[in-house]
Simulated assay, not measured.
Amino acid sequence: MRNEGGRTHLSIYVDGPSPGRKRFGDQTRLFEDLILLGRDAGVEVQVLTPGDLSARRAHTFTGMEWVLTQPAGADVVLRRSGLFHRQPALAARELVALRRQGLLHTLPRQSGQKWRLYTWLRTDHRLRSHLPPTWLCARVEDLIALLAAQDDLYLKPLNGTQGQGIYRVRKRAGRVELWSAAASAPLVMSTPSELGRAWPAGSWIPSVAQQTIPLAQIGNRPFDLRWLVCDGDDPTIIARVARVGTPQAVTTNIHTGSEPRFAEDVLEDAFGTKAARDLVGQLDEIALAVAGRARQRFGPYAELGLDLAVREDGRVYFIELNPTPGRKMLRHLDPEVHRLSLQALLEYAIQVRQRRGG
Rank of each mutant, 00 (worst) to 15 (best):
L36F: 09
G73K: 06
L306T: 04
E303H: 11
R122Q: 15
L147H: 02
L279K: 04
Q211E: 15
R355T: 07
L333Y: 05
R57F: 08
G196W: 00
D265Q: 12
V280T: 13
V96Y: 04
A242I: 07
L78T: 09
Q87T: 03
L147M: 08
G38D: 05
R128M: 12
A185M: 11
L267G: 04
A173S: 14
L279Q: 00
L340F: 07
E32M: 14
Q27M: 15
T60S: 15
T324G: 09
E4M: 01
E65F: 05
A209G: 01
H332R: 14
D26N: 15
L225Q: 02
R86N: 10
G202A: 01
H59S: 11
V208H: 10
V43F: 04
T252G: 06
A209M: 04
P300W: 11
G163I: 03
T28N: 11
P132W: 03
G5T: 03
H332D: 12
R356H: 15
A173G: 07
R331G: 06
T191D: 10
T236A: 11
E141I: 05
S129W: 00
A242D: 01
R243K: 15
G232Q: 03
T212M: 13
V290M: 03
A148F: 10
P325E: 09
P71T: 01
Q217R: 15
T8R: 15
R277N: 08
S258H: 00
G292M: 07
R116D: 15
L117A: 07
K156R: 14
Y118I: 07
R23E: 03
G16I: 02
G202P: 00
R331A: 09
L95C: 10
Q343P: 10
L228D: 04
G196M: 00
R327T: 13
P247C: 05
L90N: 02
S190T: 15
D26Q: 14
A309K: 01
D26S: 14
L131Y: 06
G272A: 13
D151L: 15
Q296H: 01
A183H: 13
D307K: 00
A72L: 13
L158H: 14
V47C: 04
L104V: 12
